[in-house]
């Protein structure tokens, strides 16, 4: 069963009709294939026009679409010889963050991703992509490992945020995130991060203090969820749509603000309509981002990464 978002209803209706027609037996009264073709053209136009002007709130829904490619899908699609790594060597393995070594376009890399999980059981195992301190400590461990062996670090971020739980606080959630950010910034190897779905606050930046930050066209990246922001600043979580507008959380807005470097175009109708094509486009974009960084001396990478983050917000954004 395909999952349609609220604003995709008109699209769903036409696609439903097409499906019905395809199952009808051929009859002399009407030319079914002609009708299917007409409707297909119509739905194509509709998808194009809908997705050309998604509002920030609609993008939030697309970014959270269950059919969207997850970090594990990206790893499966782009990384060969993948060897998963587990554990923070102190407490546990946190499956909200997947980690490993492998090859990207033939070269050895370290990979990190926040993983939401696909089916219900899987989602619970991955805690819906909300990592605990163990996850951020595993990330730090893998980043430091990559640094020692000269491997570029690729991260794929898709998280509602760090897990707000009693156990997470007891084991130092804040410290774990801070140390992960520090590890990203100190890595003497290229760090390339992509926000593939939701870039939720501290849980996202923990894996995204990178040389080059990419974002899928319909991904979002924000300091707080629109719902959370609405309930605090408007005292009404129902005003999430308004908050989404105000937060400037779309790829386009963040590029204008100079906070991300590259927007990765998604297939027509969003990455969930064609995950394979979306992942291929992402692979190309990551490759382009990584090329000029490869072979740079570690000290220069670190210095430039610092300058880049220190420059953020110093100049007024281009209108």
């Amino acid at each position: 069963m395909r999952h349609f978002l609220d604003f995709e209803k008109p699209i769903a209706e036409i696609e439903g009709k097409i499906e019905e027609l395809r199952h009808l037996p051929e009859s002399p009264d009407m030319n079914i294939s002609e009708e299917v073709e007409r409707l297909s053209e119509k739905v194509d136009k509709l998808i194009r026009s809908t997705y050309a002007k998604l509002t920030p709130w609609q993008k939030t829904q697309v970014a959270r679409h269950p059919g969207r490619p997850h970090a594990a899908d990206v790893v499966a699609g782009l990384i060969t010889e993948f060897v998963p790594l587990a554990g923070d060597r102190a407490f546990a393995d946190d499956r909200a963050i997947i980690a490993g070594l492998g090859r990207f376009e033939g070269s050895a890399v370290a990979v990190l991703g926040t993983e939401k999980g696909a089916e219900t059981e899987d989602r619970v195992a991955h805690n819906f992509g909300m990592a605990r301190p163990e996850g951020y400590r595993k990330a730090r461990r893998v980043i430091e490992l990559a640094g020692r062996f000269g491997l570029p670090v690729l991260t794929f971020v898709d998280t509602p945020g760090a897990y707000p739980g009693i156990d997470a606080e007891a084991r130092g959630q804040a410290e774990a995130i801070a140390r992960a950010i520090e590890a990203c910034l100190a890595a003497p190897v290229p760090v390339v991060s992509t926000i593939i779905g939701e870039g939720g606050s501290g849980g996202a930046i923990a894996l995204a203090a990178a040389d080059h930050v990419l974002m899928f066209e319909h991904a979002i990246y924000s300091v707080i969820s629109p719902e959370g922001c609405a309930s605090i600043l408007w005292r009404d979580a129902a005003l999430a749509e308004t908050a989404a507008e105000a937060l400037k959380l779309t790829a386009e807005d963040l590029k204008k603000l100079g906070l991300i470097d590259t927007i990765v175009p998604e297939p027509l109708g969003g990455a969930h309509r064609d995950p394979t094509a979306a992942i291929a486009a992402l692979g190309k974009a990551v490759s382009t981002a990584l090329a000029p960084l490869s072979g740079e001396p570690g000290a220069r990478l670190v210095a430039r990464r610092r300058e880049k983050f220190l420059a953020m917000g110093r100049a007024a954004p281009a209108a």
């Binding site: 801070a178 520090e182 606050s201 501290g202 930046i205 300091v223 922001c229 220190l310 917000g313």
Partner: peptide, 22 residues
């Protein structure tokens, strides 16, 4: 915590202040 009225710019203060510490 972060100043929500500055959106992702406030989020970027996390790496920026981490650099200050470094």
């Amino acid at each position: 915590g972060a100043r929500m009225q500055e959106g992702a710019l406030s989020l970027m203060q996390m790496p920026r202040t981490t650099i200050a510490v470094q």
